[in-house]
């Protein structure tokens, strides 16, 4: 009897030891799995970061500061810089003035054909810029469906600075309108209702209540539209051409300079990278402020 009990106890201890060993093994295995998962993610992150950072670093390494500053005096670079900044600023102004009411109506009201209108507004985001350029040419070019009539009055749109702005408005407006629409949707309708019951008209409510609450989102959207305009290439070259001082914006000048003076090309690229960085920082700061306020 006592022998049996002793035997059972030995078996029990042996089982426990086996179980402990199993537990230890599972513990080591799960720690190893976790560590290798972390290492895998880290490697993936490093590859992704390098892929994005390397070309930008190369841009700076291949263009020494004194060469960059010298290239900045090149008439081609100066013209492109001036034209890009002017047209992008005008485009942003047009997009904000026209896009704000559209975004507000889209956020607040339901009307017949709203789905189609919203899809049309978003379309240029996914449309290849070259297609946008051809489409604009077919509409407003000399033989286009609208341009044909404009031409009869002596108005020529294609291959002018106006065409640059039109191409930029076409591709960048969705960036503003989408952001503005989301910002307006985020404004609680009770603020609007409270203002109305206190005696404010719809217009007064919009400018004094809704707009100030949504303003950071709208500024973020405008910055994104400005950045998109600044980088616009495909639609511009198709619809406005590539004429220095008139339609040759920075991306077009980079492309043109590539075939001659690479330093000018690098100099303009560095300016665009710097502006892009500034835009990202501005948008992130704005978004953080909105999130903190909410």
């Amino acid at each position: 009897m006592s022998q049996n009990i002793a035997c059972d106890q030995t078996e029990l201890i042996a089982e426990r030891e086996t179980a402990n060993r199993d537990h230890e093994f599972i513990g080591i295995y799960s720690r190893l799995a976790r560590a290798s998962l972390k290492a895998g993610i880290a490697v993936l992150l490093i590859i992704a970061m390098s892929f994005i950072a390397l070309p930008i670093i190369a841009l700076f390494l291949k263009s020494p500061l004194d060469t960059t500053l010298q290239s900045l005096r090149d008439p081609m670079a100066l013209d492109a810089l001036r034209l890009s900044l002017t047209t992008s600023a005008l485009t942003t102004l047009i997009v904000v003035v026209m896009g704000t009411p559209i975004a507000y109506v889209s956020a607040r009201f339901h009307y017949f054909g709203k789905e189609i209108a919203d899809s049309l507004i978003d379309l240029p985001v996914i449309m290849p810029p070259a297609v946008a350029g051809i489409a604009l040419l077919m509409a407003f070019g000399r033989m286009g469906i609208v341009g044909h009539y404009l031409n009869a009055f002596g108005i020529s749109v294609a291959f002018t600075t106006l065409a640059v702005i039109m191409a930029q408005v076409f591709v960048s407006s969705p960036f503003y309108i989408r952001q503005a629409r989301t910002s307006f949707e985020d404004v609680d309708v009770s603020f609007e209702n409270a203002a109305r019951t206190l005696g404010a008209s719809r217009v007064y409510t919009f400018f004094h209540v809704i707009l100030p609450i949504a303003i950071n989102g709208l500024i973020s959207g405008a910055i994104m539209a400005f950045a998109r305009s600044l980088g616009e290439f495909g639609a511009t070259i198709m619809f406005a051409g590539n004429f220095q001082g008139r339609t040759q914006t920075m991306p077009l000048a980079i492309y043109t300079a590539m075939q001659g003076d690479l330093d000018v090309s690098l100099c303009l690229s560095i300016i665009l990278v710097a502006i892009s960085f500034a835009v990202i920082i501005l948008v992130r700061t704005m978004t953080r402020r909105v999130t903190r306020r909410c």
Binding site: D188, S190, F191, N193, A194, A195, R196, T197, L198, G199, A200, S201, V209, P212, I213, R293
Partner: peptide, 20 residues
């Protein structure tokens, strides 16, 4: 009569104080 011309004092459940 539009809400702005009704002369009604309305306290909303969320209070709807203008946050800005």
């Amino acid at each position: 009569v539009p809400p702005e011309a009704r002369g009604i004092g309305y306290v909303f459940q969320s209070y709807a104080l203008f946050p800005h």
